[in-house]
Design a protein around this nucleic acid. Structure first.
Lengths: 354, 354
DNA sequence: GTGAAAGCGCTAACAA
DNA sequence: TTGTTAGCGCTTTCAC
């Protein structure tokens, strides 16, 4: 049987309370140095370890933080887990990782999901789930910080957003400025669900530039899927001269599909991805990408959460982070392409949304 | 205030026990249908959610599983988290992810790490930590399943291993058979720490083939680090004609470093990595790799753990999984290379370890 | 400085 | 079929 606080107390002929006070380390000045020392020694010797379940029951604090992830497979999501874990490392919190679904689940499943008493929740890119969840569990109001880029964050929730709209405007403008006339957008079926901003920004810039939009639609977000889709598409429809991809996995897939068709990057087509995963850097022709500041996002979300835990009534915390357009070989100016007419550059100036 | 079981009971003029019985769902036949219905209705209406902390305190079961990871940054480790999460998805367990260190920490830190009452632990590739931990906390004996490839798994612990020794033998033999005369091994400084098998297997095969071993040592496991190391190495020492890399991240780094020097793969040098991360597939010249069966490993480890939780006295569970040598472009036979003399093929036959 | 007592929210014998 | 009772291991007033 595991040794309890009471065992330690009895062995020392002390009360539970005294032992508890010592072990809780709060520098309670009403404990004699001698007692403190004795308790610590004996507790250590007996191999006492506090039972956090019991402690949590009485204090109402579990020191558990839940990370709600939409997905875990892509390196992009894995990076989020990594950064959150690193962020929590020195703090007295353990990290619970939960895979929420893209689609809200049934109320009972959601209830289970929330059943663990956590001190706070970090929710990445799952606004729809979050909304459904809160609706189904109105009494469930632990501290939540939403993070990432998504469309409809619940009202009144702390949030660290990433402004993919402006970033996409910059990325697509870059493609326009580079001289693209046929600038396509590679999306998967449902990518307008978690995040419409990229979609909206792409259309806004093209519209302003007087260029016709062109979407290439894949059925999933996988690299392999994008590869096949793009390969077939360019075979059947010819090749655009620039391609903005909804995310980096799809961009890598597109890259492969294009090469499968013998199309040169960036000579025949410029490629820009989104998210900033490391893999884009290691291709033969490194991929330009709209990089999300994940580390900063996680750090800030951690701070927000901590503050919210400490003071549930603090004012709503909000931040919007800017992604960085990283221009690499895949969308560099090429010598044999004629420069963009200046007027087109002007037209591409799109006002910021809202 | 959150609504408790007692609130529900009082509202119905029932005892706590009755409500508890209904809500625990165990199809306790000694509850009238009417009561059951009333309780469920009122509980739902009042928004009752069980307090798992309290439940855990009395039952001794938290329904928490801890995943102890050595690292989280590399896609390889991220895949493990993904597969464990997917595995646990339909089960009534939540997943706690903890970053253990490559090096055992201080006893007090380790104590904190273990302080949460979890029903079981899945420990990936951190045998040294595990050993130190158990030594420091002899009273701490929750169900643990160790998984992955590492050197000195604690005695008496359930384990799902991956036999990287045999796999490496196969990989290096493949390079020998391909006609390599100067077959190098790319390692980082400490890679002999978590796992010596690759090292041992490499030397065994080279020895048996009468070929001189050659190590290229990097200071870390990063792609960038390996890139620079390999680039400088081949510039200063000329290029081996085959390279076995300790893992895929380093293989990708090597790939880039070699190309930086204008060295052709596989014409000038064959490359084989280890782990089987997806990225190896997407390079210009796809990388051969010794792929670990991660999904199978996680599934089996999950089963082992479940069984151990159900019966702490069950006999020790052990499994050793074989990796798969995936041969891709980076180590394919090349036409312009003379075939291996048959005798060399024979010599390369190395007996399995042990 | 230290102890007694109450109780966190729940489950599980045992009664009735 | 339902209720009573006794905790799980700990923290925290309030006494002394």
């Amino acid at each position: 049987m595991r040794v309890t606080l009471r065992d330690v107390a009895r062995r020392l002929n002390l009360s539970d309370a005294t032992v508890s006070r010592v072990l809780n380390g709060r520098d309670d000045p009403f404990i004699s140095e001698a007692t403190r020392r004795r308790v610590k020694a004996v507790a250590g010797e007996m191999g006492y370890r506090p039972n956090r379940t019991a402690r949590a029951l009485v204090t109402g604090r579990t020191h558990l933080i839940s990370l709600w992830m939409l997905d875990l497979y892509s390196p992009f999501y894995a990076q989020v887990v990594y950064h959150v874990a690193a962020q929590l490392r020195p703090l007295p919190y353990q990290m619970l990782v939960t895979l929420t679904d893209r689609d809200p689940r049934s109320p009972s499943e959601m209830r289970d999901l929330a059943s663990w008493e956590v001190d706070g929740i970090l929710a990445h890119e799952n606004a729809p789930f979050l909304n459904a969840f809160r609706e189904a569990n109105p009494s469930f109001r632990p501290p939540i910080v939403a993070m990432g880029s998504f469309s409809c964050p619940p009202e009144e929730i702390d949030r660290v957003g990433i402004d993919l709209y402006s970033g996409t405007v910059e990325a697509v403008r870059h493609l326009v400025a580079r001289g693209g006339r046929r600038i396509a957008y590679l999306v998967n079926d449902r990518s307008n669900f978690p995040d419409k901003h990229r979609h909206a920004a792409y259309h806004a810039v093209l519209g302003a530039a007087g260029l016709p939009p062109e979407s290439i639609v894949t059925s999933d977000q996988s690299r392999g899927g994008a590869r096949v889709t793009v390969r077939d598409y360019v075979r059947d429809h010819g090749c655009p001269d620039a391609l903005f991809c909804h995310n980096d996995d799809m961009a890598i897939g597109a890259y492969l599909g294009l090469r499968d068709q013998g199309i040169r990057i960036p000579d025949d087509v410029a490629l820009v991805g989104c998210d900033g995963i490391e893999d884009t850097e290691w291709l033969e022709c490194p991929l330009s990408t709209l990089a999300q500041p994940l580390e900063q996002m996680c750090a800030l979300a951690g701070e927000f959460l901590q503050r919210r835990i400490d003071d549930p009534n603090a004012p709503r915390q909000q931040a919007m982070l800017q992604p960085t357009l990283v221009i690499r070989e895949s969308s560099r100016e090429t010598a044999d392409r004629e420069p963009v007419p200046p007027v087109l550059r002007e037209e591409a100036a799109v006002g910021d949304r809202r």
